[in-house]
Amino acid sequence: MSTLVFLEHHGSSIQKGSLGVLSKAAAIDPDTSAVLVGSGVAGLAEQAGKYGAKTVFVADGEAVAAPLPQPRVDIVSRLVQEKGFGNVLFAASVLASDVAGGVSARLDAGLNWDLNDLAMDGGALVGKRSALGDTISADVGWTTEPRLALIRAGSFEPKENGGSASVESIGTDLEDFSSKAVMVEQLQEQASGPSIEEADILVTGGRGLGSPEGFQLMEELASAIGGAVASTRAVVDSGWYPYATQIGQTGKVVSPKLYIGCGVSGAIQHKVGMQTSQVIVSINKDPNAPIFDFSDLGVVGDLQAIVPQLTALVKERRGS
């Protein structure tokens, strides 16, 4: 058995999630290699050796500079076919998910996603995942090789358990259709405003607020209780609140003492950013909202009525 780990990088470093998956892979399969695709990435290969990669395959070129999935599908698929890797592992991200989905179709290879652990069972890879909004957990497997897996963000911490990797350069030839999508612009979001990562209490507003003005309710409650305001991707993408306040897979991971969700459905990609909160309180008018499955106190009701009352009660209690 041999394993290939897809390494995602941003700027001049490899993503922590990728290094975590690489460390785990090397711990369960000594024959683990990695692949890096991008422009000017050869220098990062050495870093990967420290986390357990025996060989790092590097596809370096202008044609693959932009972080777009389809060129990576070409390169990873070809590498897997040539070297016959048994397992191909990805740390989940917007980019890696699209790469994994493409490789799955190209190679007709099974893909298990949202795994939070990996193990070897008598020489066979077994994935662990939770399903249905984490209401059940499952052991999943593959019926053929290569076995593809997307690992949930934050599942494995990077560990320096390796040495130095040998670096092997590979080609960047692309299929015609793979280079049709082009990156026009990459906008870095400025993180302005208070950091939600440091706050002990987070009052989180979701699309259930109904409008950007709804965030005033969040700000009033946050100021009464002594917390900061956080948000979901749905409201950030709608331009209701700044990206710097977004919790979740593509936002921040937070563990406040108290998380209060108002009009937040609790989609899995939001949950992965806040599930380690010590106490979770949620207000949602839909009794079947997934967030109730992981709330310490769930309130079925209209936030427009409840939040102003709660703000007033908290103010009274704190004498402010």
Binding site: H10, L68, V94, V182, M183, V184, L187, E189, D237, T250
Partner: peptide, 16 residues
């Protein structure tokens, strides 16, 4: 679209 690092603007010809 939103990614882990901010926003991408991507162009592609049809069919897509």
């Amino acid at each position: 679209r939103q990614t882990e690092f901010g926003y991408d603007r991507i162009q592609a010809p049809l069919p897509a």
